[in-house]
Write a protein that binds this DNA or RNA. Structure first.
Lengths: 205, 205
DNA sequence: GGAACCATACCGACCGGTTGGTATGGTCGG
DNA sequence: CCGACCATACCAACCGGTCGGTATGGTTCC
């Protein structure tokens, strides 16, 4: 009777995204994920051989979901690469809404708990973050070539910096219990990128 | 010999800083902390009424330790407030050495796992981060008044942004298993602050 | 068509190691 | 002797993972 709904494996993965983002990886029980998916533990271990393997697959699922989400975002339509980069940052700010677990990042949360004890999960989280950064770096590289070819920084490092700011903003939002501090930090990030590409200060007259 | 019976509580707190930074809060067992401190569980529950309360006190202990550490750092000796801010950033970069758990932040790690389930720990982590940011904000406010009194950002928000960058840099370092990506992000942060203050900044060599 | 057979999906009771916390008693300085 | 401190032994709940079993739908052979 579950035919019309998404298949069970996907439901378990989606449930894992929700629960782990709220409670963290270690504190999440397999039964929590099953309950959130409306499935039993037997079903869970039919689809995943262990909790650890679920985490690895959840990280990949996270990348799939977020890649599609960002691919559909409107900022890609700008012709100018710098405008796409700034549009990306605006877009990241605009989705900081709802409850904190709804806009924070699965892999940023998981990697904190697993980097030293769980290499498979750490690598899966790294692939997710680095993969997304590479996407951002493509537009940054084009903007750099066009507007700042002699800049002393690489497109890759600036893309990673955007991810660092976002991940850090999530931590502050979690500590404060509010998204507004994250919005402020994204504002600073946008100002930085604008300054990097438009040094229209009275420095050079 | 350390003071015989005097410091067991501190030894447990110090052990908690090490173990929780490496494994996270949920995955840390109280026996792990006891073993790292060379004490028994009876001693643990003599000093702390629960694992949760230990976490709250560990956050405060973390603030005490780090406050003293930063208070002793050389960047405070600069006369100019902007030089102190830039010196702070340089200092933060210079301590990104050793293994990852040795330079990352206890409260940034803990708050990710506890913000939605453990309000007491969340608040303790918030106090630690916000308290440190306030310290940084003092010099930023002086620099702003001196060099950029009409800037469209507040000293408080820029101070929080520095913390966001650092926390995010720690996450990237954990995912990558290397500090170098964190160093790059701190470089971007320093460049941002320099750009913010650049127009009226008197270069002195 | 239908009986026999099989694969996939799913259920939930159960197992055994783990873990936060407790009970009890010993040691030692004052 | 008292109370702070700490160790050992222990407990009950918890939790990841297992296992026997059911339901359903597809395939093959007559």
């Amino acid at each position: 009777m579950n035919a019309p709904t998404a298949d069970s494996r996907t439901r378990l993965l989606d449930a894992a995204l929700q629960v782990i983002r709220a409670r963290g990886y270690s504190a999440t029980r397999v039964d929590d994920i099953c309950a959130a998916a409306g499935l039993s533990k037997g079903s869970f271990f039919h689809h995943f051989e262990s909790k650890e393997q679920l985490a690895v697959e959840a990280a990949r699922h996270w990348s799939t979901v977020t890649d599609a989400f960002f691919a559909a975002a409107p900022y890609h339509r700008a012709d100018d690469p710098l405008q796409r980069v700034l549009g990306y940052i605006d877009f990241r700010k605009s989705i900081l809404m709802g409850r904190v677990p709804e806009f924070t990042c699965l892999v940023g949360t998981m990697v904190q708990e697993t980097y030293d004890t769980n290499p498979a999960i750490r690598e899966a989280c790294d692939r997710s973050i680095s993969g997304h950064a590479s996407e951002v770096a493509r537009d940054i590289a084009l903007a750099r070539e066009k507007y700042a070819p002699d800049a002393p920084w690489t497109a890759e490092s600036l893309a990673l910096h955007t991810q660092a700011v976002l991940q850090g903003a999530f931590i502050l939002a979690k500590a404060r219990g509010s998204a507004s501090v994250a919005e402020d930090s994204v504002d600073h990030l946008k100002r930085y990128v604008e300054l990097l590409f438009h040094p229209n200060h009275p420095k050079e007259h």
